[in-house]
Every structure is written in C-alpha cells, then in structure tokens.
Amino acid sequence: MSKRVLIFDDDVDILSICTYILEEQGWEVQTSSHCNNIVETVRAFMPQVILMDNWIPDTGGVVATQTLKKEADLKNIPVIYFSANNDIQSLARQAGADTYLEKPFDLNELEAVIDKVANDRERIAS
C-alpha cells in the first residue's frame, strides 16, 4: 500500500517544502490551499495521514477537521493539526485532531510525527 499524505494549507511555501521532504521519504503527496469540498477531496485521495492548517480557507481547520471526523469512512484517518497559533494544543483538541505540530517546525519533527501517526494507524488496523 502506498503511503499517502494530504496537506491542507494556504501557504504555498509550506506546501512545497512539505511536499519535497515527504516525497523524498517515499510519500505520495496531495495538497490543497482551501478546504472547500473537503469530504470529497479526502475520499478521492484516501490518505493515510492528513496535515491540517488552522487558518485554511474557507471554514478553517477546526471546522474542516470536525467535518472529517463525523464521516464514518474518514474518521480514522489521523489528522495532524499544524499552526503557528500559540493555542495550538487547545485548537487541535477542539477540532478532534489526533495530534498537532507547531509552526515553525523542524523538518525531522515533521517526518517523525507523520511516521508515528501512520504507524499507529497501521497497528490499530491490523
């Protein structure tokens, strides 16, 4: 099974850096600069992991994550909430995200948190 990650962020620099790093690690990466039609976008790609920005247009990361977690076929996809907001832990909890990553982040930290949630999901599924 290919490793797939879907990144929702409106910062093109973050999207391109994350894409480059994760593709180097063997991930298939898809990005979106908004969360319009989020359920359809996620279903079409079916990632192992989702990175969700707090300030993603149009509804924001909290509502977007809550929307995904309400869908029976999508609720078990780990969502990593990432933001420069100083209240990220509380926002991630409110959203129902599986974990969070503070911006700016270390690239090794990005890889580690994605690998951890992907491995945790794999372990639970088997």
Rank of each mutant, 00 (worst) to 15 (best):
Ala44Arg: 07
Phe82Gly: 05
Leu91Ser: 14
Arg43Asn: 02
Ile56Val: 12
Trp27Cys: 03
Thr31Ile: 03
Asp73Met: 10
Glu102Gln: 15
Ala97Asn: 15
Leu107Ile: 09
Phe45His: 01
Leu68His: 09
Leu22Ala: 10
Tyr100Asp: 13
Tyr100Phe: 15
Asp10Asn: 15
Ala118Gln: 04
Asn119Gln: 11
Ala97Met: 15
His34Ile: 00
Leu51Val: 08
Ile38Val: 15
Gly26Asn: 09
Leu107Lys: 00
Ser83Arg: 10
Ser2Cys: 02
Asn37Asp: 15
Gln94Val: 11
Val113Phe: 00
Ile14Thr: 07
Ala84Val: 04
Thr65Pro: 05
Phe82Asn: 11
Ala44Asn: 13
Ala97Tyr: 14
Arg4Gly: 07
Asn108Met: 12
Asn119Trp: 03
Trp55Pro: 00
Met52Pro: 12
Glu111Pro: 00
Ser32Gly: 09
Ile7Glu: 11
Leu74Cys: 10
Ser2Lys: 12
Glu109Thr: 08
Ala44His: 09
Ser16Thr: 08
Asp53Arg: 06
Arg93Trp: 07
Arg4Pro: 01
Val117Asp: 00
Glu24Arg: 07
Tyr20Glu: 15
Trp55Tyr: 09
Gly96Thr: 14
Leu6Tyr: 09
Glu40His: 11
Lys75Gly: 02
Glu111Lys: 14
Ala97Val: 07
Cys35Met: 10
Ile7Thr: 03
Ile17Gly: 01
Trp55His: 14
Thr99Phe: 04
Asp9Pro: 11
Leu15Gln: 11
Asp53Gly: 06
Gln30Lys: 12
Ser33Ala: 15
Ser90Leu: 08
Asp58Ser: 06
Thr31Val: 08
Glu111Asn: 05
Ala44Trp: 02
Ser90Tyr: 14
Val5Gly: 00
Asp106Thr: 04
Lys116Glu: 12
Thr31Asn: 03
Tyr100Gly: 04
Pro47Cys: 01
Met46Thr: 01
Thr59Ile: 15
Ile17Ala: 00
Thr59Phe: 08
Leu68Trp: 09
Ala72Met: 10
Ser90Glu: 14
Thr31Gln: 00
Glu24Tyr: 02
Ala112Phe: 03
Ala44Val: 05
Ile17Phe: 12
Ala95Ser: 14
Gly96Phe: 09
Thr31Tyr: 04
Leu6Met: 15
Gly26Ser: 02
Arg121Val: 02
Tyr81Cys: 05
Arg121His: 09
Arg93Pro: 00
Pro47Asn: 04
Ile114His: 03
Arg123Asp: 04
Ala125Tyr: 13
Asp13Lys: 03
Asn108Ser: 10
Ile50Val: 13
Ile77Tyr: 02
Thr19Gly: 08
Gly60Leu: 10
Asp87Lys: 11
Pro57Leu: 02
Glu102Asp: 08
Ile7Gly: 04
Leu110Trp: 05
Ser2Arg: 07
Pro47Gly: 01
Cys18Gly: 03
Gln30Thr: 04
Ser33Cys: 12
Thr31Ala: 05
Thr99Tyr: 08
Ile114Gln: 05
Ile88Glu: 06
Gly96Asn: 13
Thr99Pro: 01
Asp11Tyr: 06
Asn85Met: 14
Asn108Pro: 01
Glu102Asn: 13
Glu28Ser: 03
Ala72Tyr: 11
Leu91Asn: 12
Ser32Gln: 13
Asn119Ser: 07
Asp53Ile: 06
Lys69Cys: 10
Ile80Ala: 01
Val113Leu: 04
Gln48Val: 04
Val62Pro: 06
Ile124Thr: 11
Tyr20Asp: 07
Ile17Asp: 02
